[in-house]
Design a protein around this nucleic acid. Structure first.
Lengths: 134, 134
DNA sequence: ATAACAAACGTTATATTATAACAAATTAAG
DNA sequence: CTTAATTTGTTATAATATAACGTTTGTTAT
């Protein structure tokens, strides 16, 4: 019983469901194949839903993978502050929920005195499972 | 007189020159158009050079833009730790050189105790010029 | 309730970004 | 020199993403 999903349109709902059920990030065309039985036929329908879902913070794009993942973090309001860990071996992706980190980055001021409204951080390494197996 | 460039191959050299001369990040196909007079004819030739240049840390990929920029930061050895600021208005991109930030992120340990080998951070906001103009 | 507007939809076509596969040429090392 | 590794050239194609158009649905204000 998630709240505030009644405002999503039909296609947005379908695409979000697929992404939320997935274990990891999904690519746009893989989403497309998965939702064809539900009436979505064209890439653009998927991309439009993705765009909206990103806008309202329900999902994030993993830029280094061109893939999309459900937001598990109520803190990153409207995707202004996102951080992920990505396993180089099994490609497992996890959203990092760390208050210190997000505070540090949200308040970061560069050498020229600039502050930023938004950031996206991607960490790469081996996840615990893959570290053990090696 | 940059050092250590004698080891680059012809195509790698050509592509690097274009990227280093550019004011901002370049897209692969824009690089291609720019180097056709110098004998590079196919996308793959560009992508291969890009791959190598990234590998040896001469350039970075701006993931959110699918574009490539020369490394201006001798500190980010072999691109293990990259941070950029990106202007939402004029699309100006700048590599952030900030020792505190890079130390903070390189030493970051997440809630599960994981440390990471590599990260890429992209900040978004308005650059100084665009802030003034608004 | 309905006119006016905004948001979402469906569809076709196409643009943009990136890689596969294979053979030839070049370079580096033993 | 010759073997191995890297780089090159080339053609084809895969994968990712958007343009443009007209229609339908949903919202809001009267």
């Amino acid at each position: 019983m998630t709240q505030k999903q009644e405002q999503l349109s039909k296609n947005q709902q379908i695409v979000l469901n697929i992404i939320e059920k997935a274990k990891g990030p999904l690519k746009a065309y893989s989403i497309l194949y998965n939702v064809q039985k539900r009436g979505i036929k064209a890439p653009l329908q998927v991309y439009r839903a993705l765009e909206k879902l990103i806008e309202i913070g329900k999902i994030h794009k993993i830029e280094s993978k061109n893939a999309f993942i459900a937001c598990k973090n109520s803190d990153c309001e409207i995707s202004k502050a996102t951080a992920f860990s990505i396993c180089n071996n099994c490609e497992h992706v996890k959203e990092i929920k760390n208050t210190k980190l997000s505070k540090y980055l949200s308040n970061f001021v560069d050498n020229s005195g600039m502050k930023y409204k938004k950031y996206n951080l991607e960490f790469f390494g081996l996840c615990k499972d893959c570290k053990l197996k090696q």
